[in-house]
Design a protein around this nucleic acid. Structure first.
Length: 239
DNA sequence: TCATTAAATTGTT
DNA sequence: AACAATTTAATGA
């Protein structure tokens, strides 16, 4: 049974502009024929905080990607508590594992702020898997890279030092393979980052100041710039 | 385009 | 959680 937010999302779908197409990393890997087919089934919609891009348990209809904005991936456990796994910045595509198996979504995806989300219908997703080598390579690369990220996420969870948690979380948001459109500046407020990392905004602010003093990042209004990605990934002490 | 005002974000307690 | 300071976005002349 579709919820009001779901159907609202459907009604707001439209075709993509050319600049939005540039924000989709796998498009250029396709042959002209494959591209035509894919474009016809690509839709885009605006989504706001509180809405669901997809919900746990719902059948898969689309493979999603972030054109603009910031999403969070979370799940609800048996006790009804919500656990956030990761953020998805621009250029990120997710749900390919579920789409391949045509199962139901295993996570909730919600915007942390107003975002533009593209969706490729699962049938077209499968057609591309059956016809395009470039697309297969993209998806395989995606799965592999995400595996690495989830292993890293387990390490992050076991870290007690908040500065390091923030650093590692930032490093994964700057993953150039999974999120090619992030560049060196990530638009994220300290409040949004706090939601993702699971710390208070005050503590995140403190951590960011420490990271900046260490020369790993540069804090800007409404975002931050990475100066030393390697330090974010591997540094064990920030002070 | 500029000036004013409202809203968002940050830094600090 | 609350506050002031700062930055951006929105508004209208």
């Amino acid at each position: 049974m579709p919820t009001p937010t779901d159907s609202a999302l459907h009604q707001r779908r439209r075709s993509l502009t050319s600049s939005e197409l540039d924000a989709i990393p796998w498009i250029q890997l396709l042959s002209p024929l494959e591209r035509d087919r894919a474009l016809g089934e690509l839709k885009i919609a605006d989504a706001s905080p509180g809405e669901y891009i997809c919900r746990m348990g719902r059948p898969v209809t689309y493979w999603f990607g972030v054109v603009d904005g910031l999403l969070k991936m979370s799940s609800d456990n048996a006790e009804g508590q919500t656990m956030t796994f990761t953020g998805v910045p621009p250029g990120g595509w997710f749900g390919e594992g579920t789409a391949m198996k045509r199962e139901t979504y295993r996570y909730n995806i919600q915007p942390l702020r107003k975002s533009r989300v593209a969706g490729l219908h699962v049938d077209t997703f499968h057609w591309l898997l059956d016809h395009s080598i470039g697309f297969n390579r993209f998806v395989m690369n995606q799965l592999n890279e995400r595996l690495g990220q989830f292993i890293a996420a387990r390490e992050i969870d076991r870290m007690t030092n908040p500065d390091i948690r923030v650093a590692r979380s930032l490093a994964s948001l700057f993953n150039p393979v999974l999120y090619p459109n992030v560049g060196e500046v990530l638009r994220i407020t300290q409040q949004e980052l706090a939601y993702l990392v699971g710390l208070s905004r005050q503590r995140v602010n403190e951590a960011l100041t420490a990271l900046a003093a260490h020369g790993a990042i540069q804090v800007e209004y409404g975002g931050l710039r990475v100066i030393n990605l390697q330090a974010l990934r591997t540094q064990t002490i920030f002070r």
